[in-house]
Simulated scan of single mutants.
Amino acid sequence: MTVSISAVVCTHNRAEELEACLRSLCECPSVALAEVIVVDNASTDRTRLVAADYADRMPALCYVYEQAGAAVCKKQRLARCKQ
Rank of each mutant, 00 (worst) to 15 (best):
M1V: 09
M1H: 14
T2D: 10
T2G: 07
S4R: 15
S4Y: 09
I5G: 06
V8F: 01
V8G: 06
V8L: 08
T11K: 02
H12K: 15
H12P: 00
R14M: 08
A20M: 06
R23Y: 14
R23T: 14
R23S: 13
R23E: 15
R23N: 11
C26Q: 14
E27Y: 10
C28W: 15
P29G: 03
V31C: 07
A32N: 15
A32H: 14
L33F: 05
A34E: 15
A34G: 13
V36C: 06
I37W: 00
D40M: 02
A42E: 15
A42I: 04
D45T: 01
D45P: 02
T47I: 04
R48L: 11
L49H: 13
V50E: 02
V50G: 00
A51S: 09
A52R: 13
A52P: 01
D53I: 08
Y54I: 00
A55L: 03
D56L: 12
D56K: 12
D56R: 14
D56Y: 08
R57T: 07
R57S: 10
A60H: 11
L61M: 07
Y63K: 02
Y65R: 12
Y65T: 05
Y65M: 12
Q67D: 12
A68F: 06
A68T: 11
A70R: 13
V72R: 11
C73A: 11
Q76D: 10
Q83C: 09
